[in-house]
């Protein structure tokens, strides 16, 4: 089809590195921040009460703030490590900060694709695309944080228009 060169955001979805929507970092920061903040609150607030150091409200605020900070750091690392490549014969995803994985999903094995948008995604023109294969362990691979037009083009391009083949 088209060249293998990486393309910038908003350009035609061709083969190459898929752009990340800038706002996905916000989503990742919030979700990871929450994951850090909850245990920090659970530990911090009772401790502050028990030892009477600071007021529980302040302890909670500090816990949430540091949780968000940690989440932000993690999200930046995650985004820096993350790469999704649209190759002529499939999709290659690299992800993970501590536990890293590289997943290759051949185009010939993609059964159907799905573009999802949450309320925030719609406001920001962002979408995620889900690739479904006939496998069982990796039957569903989600590519988050794509600009909406890229996600839609990818959806159309990944669908195999050839005779149905499920790889059995």
């Amino acid at each position: 089809m088209m060249s293998d060169e990486p393309v910038s955001a908003g350009a035609t979805a061709s083969h190459g590195l898929l752009p990340l929507h800038p706002r996905i970092r916000v989503v990742w920061t919030l979700s990871h921040g929450l994951a850090y903040a909850v245990p920090l609150c659970l530990a911090g607030i009772p401790l502050s009460v028990k030892f009477d150091l600071v007021s529980p409200v302040l302890a909670g605020a500090v816990a949430i703030a540091s949780g968000l900070l940690l989440g932000w750091r993690y999200a930046m690392r995650y985004a820096a490590m993350y790469a999704a490549l649209h190759l002529p014969d499939g999709v290659l995803i690299r992800r993970g900060v501590w536990w890293r994985s590289e997943i290759f999903v051949p185009r010939a094995r993609i059964q159907h694709t799905e573009v999802n948008q949450g309320p925030l995604d719609r406001r920001w023109g962002m979408a995620s695309i889900s690739l479904h294969t006939a496998g069982t362990r990796l039957e569903h691979i989600r590519l988050p944080g794509l600009p909406r037009d890229v996600a839609e083009r990818l959806r159309d391009e990944l669908l195999d228009r050839r005779v149905h083949a499920d790889g059995a």
Binding site: W98, W99, R100, S101, E102, I103, F104, V105, P106, R109, T133, A134, G135, T136, R137, L138, E139, I141, D166, G167, A168
Partner: peptide
């Protein structure tokens, strides 16, 4: 159906990786 290459922090320290495949 799909191939995955994985590296845990321990894998990275000892220059190893694991490979997993998915089938129907």
């Amino acid at each position: 159906q799909a191939v995955t290459l994985k590296q845990s922090p321990f894998d990275r320290r000892s220059q190893m990786a694991s490979l997993r495949i998915d089938s129907m």
